[in-house]
């Protein structure tokens, strides 16, 4: 295992010891949702719809869903009616290729394209409360549904790009996603447990941020952590990685809005 100064010497020592004492997790072991690695208290916080702070954004999203916007003065509900029916299961199928543009869309990009294409409104910036609220509201409708994305046909090149990114070493620490989230999932990294690298809980309320955040914000934090280049929110690099993560997490249930450390 590659040790680095960033991971503090204590981690390397402890991890090295654990390698002797604990059976090494097989790489093909079932991928688990992020909540699996959280404390019982945090799992309870996520499961309680009042205590889970992410539900504040879901409430906001519910009112935004019905609010007319843009030139056309159409709301999301004008076309999509009740989100609990029409949006059920949608988050579990995303990211997906948009037939019209041939581009890979995640929920954020789909919402923004709806705004520019059909509502005559401006696209919302990533991490604004409005976009987070709408994304959380749409994703929440799929809570409990199992992730299942398409990776064939037009999605194949995106999937391949994402897979490559997952296994490519990057940054000053020279680590790939897989070295933590596949080879060492379930082990300790500093004060936290390494997850399987699953995006099914996002947008999630991250305690470190004290706010809801998108998956791309989380990926940027990962990139920063290994001292690699951070790509833009909604960049093709993160979008294809998001697709790979979703395929990897096939069968895991959507938890949005999750609570994460």
């Amino acid at each position: 295992m590659q040790c680095s100064r960033f991971l503090v010497s204590g981690f390397c020592g402890v991890a090295g010891l654990m390698g002797v004492l604990l059976p090494v997790l097989a790489a093909d072991q079932t991928v688990r949702p992020g909540s699996f690695y959280m404390s019982k208290n945090l799992q309870a916080l996520q499961a309680d719809d009042i205590a889970n702070p992410g539900m504040l954004w879901v409430s906001d999203g519910e009112s935004l869903w019905k609010q007319p916007v843009g030139r056309t003065q159409k709301s999301c509900a004008s076309c999509h009616d009740a989100a609990d029916v029409t949006m059920k299961g949608v988050a579990a199928r995303y990211p997906a290729v948009d037939a019209e543009s041939g581009e890979l869309f995640n929920l954020e990009k789909r919402i923004n394209t709806c705004r520019t294409r059909h509502q005559g409104a401006e696209a919302l910036a990533y991490e604004t409360d409005e976009l987070l609220a709408l994304t959380a509201y749409v994703a929440h409708q799929s809570r409990g549904e199992r992730v299942k994305v398409h990776i064939d046909g037009p999605a194949a090149p995106f999937y391949e790009a994402g897979r490559k990114r997952f296994y490519t070493r990057v940054g000053q620490l020279n680590l790939s996603c897989a070295q933590c989230h596949e080879a060492n999932a379930g082990r300790r990294l500093r004060g936290d447990t390494i997850s399987d690298g699953v995006g099914s809980g996002w947008p999630a309320y991250r305690l470190e941020w004290q706010t809801l955040g998108s998956l791309h914000r989380r990926l940027r934090a990962c990139s920063l952590g290994v001292r690699a280049r951070q790509f833009d929110f909604g960049s093709p690099e993160y979008l294809s990685l998001e697709l790979y993560l979703a395929k990897r997490a096939e069968g895991v249930r959507v938890e949005a809005p999750a609570v994460r450390r």
Binding site: I50, M55, L56, S59, D60, Q67, E130, Q210
Partner: peptide, 29 residues
Amino acid sequence: MARAPVRISMPDEAKKGEIVDIKAILRHP
């Protein structure tokens, strides 16, 4: 933006003498 900064959970009805559990969260930085 129409905000709902508060979420409250409590029963609408209770029997006299019953203990009522109440939960509340406020959106605040």
